[in-house]
Nucleic acid binder design. Structure first.
Lengths: 348, 348
DNA sequence: CTGAAAGCGCTAACAA
DNA sequence: TTGTTAGCGCTTTCAG
């Protein structure tokens, strides 16, 4: 009984040996053509290319890897706890950018999600076993030892967001400090004098930088810093709503609010409205990210836009370069942000 | 000048040959232990395991693949046009579920994003070259030939959402029809009589099914179907806002609205409010997905929840099974949905 | 239960 | 410019 499995044959792809034979050259020459070596005669090249076409030849990656000691793939490691991960379009856009930056080469994107810390160990083992040529780390907190550890074991790494360790590892970041400053300056220039901020966990450099930018702006305007107007939270909307209510208790004449993310800003707007304040008339609000939610709140949200997709593309570019030149010093790329003024701070 | 590259040595991992030598057995026996073959004596097993431990041995995937003709990785192909892709937490959650379903085995997730159709061809070539053991296709439209073509060339495939072709290919879906029916029935039971629906592109089976569910509910209640109350769109909030305004023109006494996604429902709520209607007092609204946005609108959105993460997990499970038993008939798994009643249809 | 030997498909010296 | 040769690290007959 011959179990008919037609695709078995369909999939039995041709090897470089087949190509060489068909083209009437040796395996080596065929290989040279496939790998774009210049040391091949035009005639041989044409013959091989023809054979490749006819046979639909595609190189076997495993065999190639075994020889070149390259996997032609990179790992993208998502370290963020899962909840935030997917309520937030940040990761998706970053992935899109990374994918785009990779598609020039012939490099595959292996997605590694490490939500629990048990997972984190598994991922690290995988990376260190040289199964990928390098890794992009998304979302490590300031004290995460993974970037340094991977670098030490020779894995090329690029990190999203400035790590606390600093300059030893390559990273791509947006200018969170300048972005926050521009948002708060905008509020002040609109006449606001009692401006508060609601932030994320301060073990994230982005959160720290946004806080610093907030303070920069106040000081530049000669306004006093009031610690009771600075709230550090966890980026969650629930927290932001609570924080807003508490801010109103402490400071009933609050007239400006800078939230370190749009989802927090949206929650704050609702809390303000629930308390009877009009936005922006009584309190002007600016968020951060320019997430889709910024357009669906009423009023629409003013915000600080970061070029997330471009950042992803740059991370890919940087990593690819780093893989080619592992001894070079780490690079740090910081992207400009852009203030987007909408209704929530109109005439602020 | 010896360029110091300490990690060069650090990464030079040990081979199964090293393990065998250390354990005092042959390569073959070492391999058997590593691959859990039962035909090994306890003594040899212990010796090999010890050597593996001491040497920190990790098998070389490329070499293994070359031999086994398996890549131990699967492709997850995102076919959605990019815009929708990342405003929507759907994909992230699905990825999370897939990752989870995969983590039992030792299978890696290769992410392939095909936004443009040029990309689609590239992805298809990659998949057909047997670089992955199987593929999960996310977001194919009804007329997309990729699932069928991959299946024909012998690539095990699982698709998200019921494809128009039907039963030849395995898929995982949620019961969109029943979900929509429950939403609209809920509106009707709350006394609404003029209930409209705003939908997505009807070449997506999910959109078609939600429309059918809407009609089911009206007919079950003995209400008349009115084509002017059915709007087919593109899932975008802008379109939904437009559609809402038009619906109000056509039918000023509209008192219920079912939108096929939460982002459309949110836009509709705003359009209703802008037109002076109160939600839910004048018009009750129900969305679909239970996306984060459902909690940030005012009023909060009633919606139909689908177990996205579980669906992703099931897709992974199904694919893994299909890879092991490629001749088995395709499986179709449909998940129940759940109506979540919030403010936008309170007392509906 | 174990070992010897073959070979997966490819690239990279080395010779010619 | 080309071909020959030698493996990369692993699994798997096939003998024993």
């Amino acid at each position: 009984m011959s179990t008919a499995r037609p695709h078995q044959d369909a999939r039995r792809s041709s090897t470089i040996e087949d190509v060489a034979e068909r083209a009437g050259v040796s395996r080596a020459t065929a290989s040279r053509v496939v790998n774009n070596s210049p040391r091949v005669s035009p005639g041989a090249r044409a013959a091989v290319l023809g054979a490749v076409e006819e046979l639909g030849y595609v190189p076997n990656r495993a065999a190639r890897s075994l020889m070149t000691r390259r996997s032609d793939s990179i790992g993208v490691v998502i370290l963020e706890p899962t909840a935030r991960l997917f309520a937030d379009p940040f990761f998706g856009l970053l992935l899109l950018g990374i994918n785009d930056g990779l598609s020039d080469g012939d490099v595959q994107l292996v997605l590694l999600i490490a939500s629990a810390s048990r997972e984190e160990a598994r991922v690290e083992r995988y990376l260190e076993a040289a199964h990928v040529d390098g890794a992009i780390l998304v979302g490590p907190h300031g004290d995460d030892p993974m970037p340094a550890r991977l670098t030490r074991s020779g894995v090329p790494v690029v990190v999203s967001g400035r790590p606390s360790g600093g300059s030893a590892v390559s990273y791509v970041d947006s200018d969170n400090r300048a972005g926050a400053r521009s948002a708060v300056t905008h509020l002040i220039e609109g006449g606001r004098r009692r401006v508060a901020t609601i932030n994320g966990t301060l073990d994230l450099s982005s959160a720290r930088d946004r806080l610093t930018g907030y303070r920069d702006a106040l000081q530049a305007a000669g306004l006093e810093l009031d610690p009771s107007l600075e709230v550090a939270g966890d980026f969650s909307p629930e927290m932001a709503a609570d924080a807003t209510r508490r801010l109103l208790d402490v400071c009933p004449d609050l007239d400006g609010l800078f939230a370190a993310s749009d989802s927090m800003a949206a929650a704050a707007v609702h809390a303000l409205q629930d308390s009877g304040r009009r936005v922006p008339d009584d309190v002007a609000v600016v968020g951060f990210d320019d997430a889709p939610i910024a357009l669906t709140t009423r009023p629409t949200l003013s915000t600080v836009r970061q070029p997330i997709e471009a950042m992803g593309r740059e991370m890919a570019r940087l990593l690819l370069h780093r893989i080619d030149a592992p001894t070079e010093a780490a690079s740090h790329v910081v992207f400009e942000t852009e203030l987007v003024v909408r209704e929530s701070s109109a005439g602020a």
